[in-house]
Design a binder for these strands. Structure first.
Lengths: 400, 400
DNA sequence: ATATTTAGTCCACAACATAGACTAATTCGG
DNA sequence: CCGAATTAGTCTATGTTGTGGACTAAATAT
C-alpha cells in the first residue's frame, strides 16, 4: 500500500507537480511556476532543467510577464518527443490514434469493419497491423511512443488484460493484453471508461461527470475529481443493466427490464422497424427524425424516458455533477436530451436543489481511443522521473 | 490541489506510515517495522521515538521475535492519551461514544427520545449536554479528546456542517456544525456514510463494501479500498430513492416507486397493519416473524425483493465487493437476507461470475456514532505530526 | 564461557529544498 | 542616452531528512 518516502520520491513528486502545472497553465515562466507551486525559484529551476533535458518541456520565447523588469522565459509541454497510441476495438470499426504529450492528435486511422464476423484473433491481427503502421509513422517523425491503451466494449480484467465477456462482439475470455504485442506496454480497459476519460482530457474537460456511452450495449464511465471510479473489481458503470421496470422485457443479462432493452441501439432499430443495414442504423434514424417521422420520434421519447429513469437511480447513488451523453446518444441528442433531462428533473425534484445538467459529448466515436492514449500520457505526467530514466538508457526498451 | 513536498512533509508522511503499520499489525518491534516499511532501522527508531514522546504509541514488554538474538521491544498504539467523541442524532435516540486511539470504546451514553417532537435547537441542546458530560468523564481519566464527529439522518454539507433536509426528522437548513459547540473541532456527516465507516473500522473490517442503512429512510454508504465514496457534492448513496418500479407508489421525494416505498420502516409497519407503537416497531415485527405470522413474512418477501432489485442496480453501477445490511435490516436479516441475495443473484446471473455476498452488520445502531469517532481518529493517524504539535503547545487549544 | 545472532543506537554522509546574495535583462524617468 | 528600478534566473551556504555501516546490547547455542 502506501510506502516510505525518501529523497528521490520527494524529487519525483515535485517534478510531477511542476510538469502538471506547466500543462494546466499552458505555459509558465520559472518565476510564476515558483509562485504557484510554493517551491523556491532555485528548486523550480533545477526541476525545469531536468524536464528540459528529458524533452518533456521546451522553452518558448521570452515574454514580459510583468510590465517592468527582465522578461521570463516561458516553458510549455513538448509535443515533439513523447507520444502514446490509443486503440479501440468496437463492433463496427477499429481505430487508432497517436497523441503527443501536449495532447495534440498526430495520427488518425479508422477502419470500418464488422468485427462480429471475424474470429477474435483475426480482429486482433487486423488491429495490430494498423497499430504497427501508425507506430512506424510516429517514430518516423521523431516521436517516441511510450505506451499503448486499448478500449474494448465490455468488462476487462485490467491486471491481466483479458476480456471476460464482450457480449456485443460475442467474445469470451480473450487475452487481448498478451495477444496484441506492439513492443510497448499495453493497458486494456472498458470502452465506456476510456470514453469518459477522453471526454475529460480532450472534450468538455469538467472534473466530475457521468459519461453515458450508448452503443449496442450501454455503458457509463464515472469521473470524480478528475479520476475514474472503477469499483471494487473494475466492473462499475454497467448502466445498461440498471433496472427500469423489474418485470419488463427479458434482457440477455438474465434479468428483466434493464435499460438496454429500452434505450440500446437494437431497441431503437426494432422500434423503427427498419433493420435493413445495421452499420448505418444511427444515420438512418437521424434521417427519419429530421424528416419528422412520428414512429421514430416516439421511440426516442420512450428511450429517453427509460434513460432518465435509470439515470435518476444513478444520480441518487453516485451523485455526479453532470451527465454527458455520448455514443449514439450524441447524434440523437436534439431529440432525446430534453426528455432525459425532464425525466431526471421530475424524479429528483425534492431530493436536491438542482438536478445535474444533461449535456452532449463533444467527441464522436473518437472518445475511447483518445482516452486510451491519454491514460498512457497521464502516467508520464504522474511520474516523469520514471520516464526520463527509461529515455536516457535507450538500450533497454523497458519490460511490459 | 497537489502541493509541493518538502522535508517536513516527507517526515510527516513517514511518521504516519509507521503509526499505520503499528496499528494494522497490532504491535511490532522497531526491527520488523523497518522491514515492513522499507525504512532503515535508524529512521524507524527516530520516528518511533517521536511517536512515543507524543503519547501515540507505547512500548510493551520485550519479546523474542526470532529464536536467537536480542529480543525486540514491541510497540503498540496507545489508548491512554488520545480519544475522539462520536455523536448521533437519529429519529428515536441520541447517542454518544468515546473511543480511544486504539479503537477501544471507553464510554457509551444513549438516550431514547422521539426527536421529531422537539425543535432542532432543543435536540441539539440535549445532545450537547450528553456530550459535555461524556467529555468531562473522558478528560477525567486522562484522555485528550481531539475532535468530535456527528452523524445525522440526511444529506449534509460537510464544509459548513449544515443539514439541508432531513425529512425523517422534519429538519430543514439546520446549522448543527456551528450550533453544537463542544470546544473541539466537529465534523458532521450523513448517518449512512458514518455507519459504513463504523462497520469498516469496528465491525467486519472489509475494505470494499456497500453498507445499507435501513431506518425510516434508506441510505447507503459505499466504501471502496478503505475510503468512503461521497460523489461530486457529497450526496452519493441515496439508495432509498433508487427506482424499483418507475410508475409505482408516490414517494415523498417527488418520484414514484422508489425503494423507500417498498422497504422503508414505514412500509413494513403499513404492511403489518399494526402501527401501534413506532418506537418498538421493529421489535414487534421481529416478534411476529418469530411466531411465524404469514402477513409479516409476506411483507419481508416483498421488501426483500425490492431491496434486491434496487441493489442489483447499485451493483451494476458501483460494483461493491460485498453488501452489508444494517439498521432495521440487521434484526430482520434471518427473514430478509435470503430473498435479497436470491433476487440479486437472479438478476446478475450473466453479468459476472459471482454476485456480491449479502451479509449482516455486526454493529447495531452503534455503527454511526462509532464511525463518527473513528473518522476523527483517522485524521490523527493520517497526520500524527499535526497532532503532536498541538499536543506540545497546550496553551493554544486549536482553532475552529 | 564463548561464538552466534538479532535489536537498537551512533556517526559520517548524501540528497534535496531553502534563503538570500548575486547577475541578467528589461522598463521608466530625467 | 544613461542611471535607477524592477523582475528573472543562478549561485552558494545551510538546514533537514533518510541512508549505510560500524558499534553496543542482550539473548540463545554449543
Amino acid at each position: 500500500m502506501a510506502q516510505a518516502v525518501r529523497h528521490d520520491e520527494m524529487r519525483a513528486h515535485n517534478l510531477a507537480l511542476v510538469l502538471r502545472e506547466v500543462r494546466s497553465h499552458g505555459s509558465l515562466t520559472r518565476a510564476t511556476l515558483a509562485e504557484v507551486t510554493g517551491l523556491t525559484k532555485t528548486t523550480v529551476s533545477k526541476l525545469v532543467g531536468d524536464l528540459l533535458e528529458a524533452g518533456l518541456v521546451v522553452e518558448a520565447g521570452a515574454v514580459r510577464a510583468r510590465e517592468r523588469g527582465r522578461p521570463g522565459v516561458e516553458v510549455r509541454v513538448s509535443g515533439d518527443r513523447v507520444a502514446a497510441i490509443g486503440l479501440e476495438i468496437n463492433v463496427d470499426y477499429l481505430s487508432v490514434r497517436v497523441v503527443d504529450l501536449s495532447r495534440r492528435v498526430r495520427l488518425r486511422l479508422t477502419q470500418a469493419v464488422d468485427n462480429r464476423l471475424s474470429k477474435p484473433m483475426d480482429v486482433i491481427g487486423d488491429l495490430r497491423r494498423l497499430a504497427l503502421s501508425a507506430l512506424a509513422q510516429a517514430e518516423g517523425t521523431g516521436l517516441r511512443v511510450v505506451g499503448a491503451g486499448l478500449a474494448v466494449p465490455g468488462p476487462v480484467d485490467i491486471e491481466s488484460g483479458e476480456i471476460h465477456n464482450a457480449p456485443n462482439l460475442g467474445w469470451r475470455n480473450v487475452p487481448v493484453g498478451t495477444a496484441l504485442d506492439l513492443g510497448v506496454p499495453l493497458r486494456v480497459e472498458n470502452e465506456a471508461n476510456l470514453a469518459a476519460l477522453g471526454e475529460l482530457w480532450f472534450g468538455a474537460g469538467r472534473a466530475d461527470f457521468l459519461y453515458v456511452s450508448g452503443e449496442i450495449g450501454i455503458g457509463a464511465g464515472l469521473v470524480v475529481n478528475g479520476a475514474l471510479f472503477r469499483g471494487a473489481r473494475g466492473f462499475a458503470g454497467e448502466l445498461g443493466h440498471v433496472v427500469v421496470t423489474p418485470e419488463g422485457p427479458q434482457c440477455r443479462c438474465g434479468a428483466r427490464g434493464c435499460l438496454e432493452q429500452y434505450a440500446g441501439q437494437d431497441a431503437f432499430l426494432d422500434a423503427v422497424a427498419d433493420r435493413s443495414s445495421f452499420a448505418h442504423g444511427i444515420d438512418a434514424i437521424v434521417a427519419h427524425l429530421e424528416h419528422g417521422d412520428p414512429t421514430t420520434k416516439a421511440a426516442c421519447e420512450k428511450a429517453g424516458w427509460a434513460l432518465g429513469v435509470a439515470l435518476s437511480s444513478a444520480i441518487n447513488l453516485v451523485d455526479p455533477h453532470t451527465i454527458v451523453l455520448g455514443g449514439i446518444y450524441a447524434p440523437l441528442f436534439p431529440w432525446i436530451g430534453g426528455v432525459v433531462a425532464e425525466t431526471i428533473g421530475g424524479r429528483l425534484a425534492q431530493m436536491r436543489a438542482t438536478a445535474p445538467p444533461v449535456e452532449v459529448s463533444r467527441l464522436g466515436s473518437e472518445a475511447a481511443a483518445l482516452g486510451a492514449a491519454g491514460q498512457v500520457l497521464e502516467t508520464v505526467v504522474a511520474d516523469p522521473a520514471a520516464l526520463s530514466e527509461r529515455l536516457t538508457d535507450r538500450r533497454d526498451p523497458g519490460p511490459r
